[in-house]
Design a protein around this nucleic acid. Structure first.
Lengths: 230, 230
DNA sequence: CGACGCGTTGAGCAGACTCAATCACAGTGG
DNA sequence: CCACTGTGATTGAGTCTGCTCAACGCGTCG
């Protein structure tokens, strides 16, 4: 995610993953399914549980009072949903399934109890929240300092790395979100995203057919994602 | 102690504040002073403690491997520094004093122990981390959806609200950071920030003399900070 | 005093946006 | 089976906001 870091504890670097085994033994996990486009939760609904993505993927959408809206992130298998709402009476944002998906519900009281009882779990949870902060900050940095093209390149590299972490191909994958969602997350317009993908195709860095992406020149993409100039 | 927050759980809304009394009784707090421009910590230094701002203010700077840099936030009295590094061997970013400042050091092992022993503290800490996530997300939303002028207006309103929370005037205050820092945080160039402040002055919304700011028309500023168009 | 960092201001440029048309595809129903 | 429809994606032309480059003023501090 950040760089080629090896030999550090997982909870620090992995997306919002925690030690699932520890939680699974301690909690009575409820499975919840969501069809593509349907919400796992909406902003304002009572906050009573965290959710672990088990199948599929979700987007997290922040909303402002005046209607402005932005995709804050995408969550894949093994990642946690709802951590941003801890300490609030209701959820702070929306979580919507990008495809037919399934989560495990982790009720808050049970998690708190487990954090007390299971040694190390408290630290893992705090570590997962801190990792979420770092991930957000890392994207804030990119969105604030990179032009459109490197931004899209960085996004593709991020998705690729996460698929790789799940055992899927890092070179060939399906984008589960629309161009509009990508654009919102990247603070661009969907036309711009489309144009950039087109240009990356012209450069032979990638091959895109609608949602299907093939990375042809990972080194070039990585270089582009790091340098401010093209 | 915290601020005039009404009728909602404190840990949820306050900046990165926690129940300081609970921590103070449990921890042997060490005071650390920093002159303007000097670091409280730098990215990579061993992470052993959180820090509570007691006097003055700090900026938090994220850095990318390729040298890109961005101010991720500003911390004032009562706010926590270092939470983003929880679970890592070293700090994930820099924290630099904007003026002569002082922090209370909260050693990690002691905090963890206290979180075990003091009922509710664990939740408060998790709540503080979640609040940090929400604050970052809230700025990501603004930076992604607002043009330069509303962005600066929103920034001024944010600073004003935080000063008000500390018992200072919300109408008249000193910006502790340079235009460059503001610009970095707002993902703008410092010339743009300068121009926007100039324009807000022309509009009689504010009065600026270098770092000194007076808010003349708070309603207009608030309106500007919320609407995407001017 | 001189120097450097910070802040302001101006002119011109360019990258991303706006507006708009068109295309591809999946789902629906006749 | 295919026309119809709506959403998502692509592409083009023109515009504009914020950036770049540059000069200058102010203040502070060595």
């Amino acid at each position: 995610m950040n760089g080629p870091v090896a030999s550090t504890p997982r909870a620090s670097w992995a997306p919002s993953t925690v030690d699932i085994d520890a939680l699974r033994v301690a909690l009575a996990v409820v499975r919840r399914k969501h069809r593509a486009g349907h919400p796992l939760y909406r902003a304002g609904q009572p906050f009573r549980a965290l959710h672990l993505v088990h199948v599929g993927s979700y987007k997290v959408c922040d909303l402002a009072a005046d209607g402005r809206e932005k995709v804050a992130g995408f969550k894949m298998r093994g990642e946690l949903l709802g951590v941003e709402s801890i300490g609030l009476p209701g959820y702070a944002c929306d979580a919507v399934a990008l495809e037919d998906s399934e989560t495990w519900e982790l009720p808050c009281p049970a998690v708190l109890q487990a954090a007390h009882d299971i040694p190390g779990l408290q630290e893992q949870i705090a570590g997962a929240l801190a990792a979420e902060i770092r991930r957000d900050r890392s994207w804030m940095l990119r969105l604030g300092t990179l032009p459109a093209e490197p931004r899209v390149a960085a996004f593709l590299m991020d998705i690729a790395a996460r698929y790789a972490g799940l055992g899927y191909s890092a070179r060939h994958f399906i984008l589960r979100m629309t161009r509009l969602d990508m654009a919102s997350f990247l603070a661009l317009k969907h036309e711009t995203v489309s144009r950039v993908l087109g240009h990356l195709t012209d450069l032979r860095y990638i091959d895109v057919r609608r949602r299907e992406v093939r990375l042809l020149d990972v080194d070039a993409l990585r270089a582009m994602a790091c340098a401010q100039a093209a």
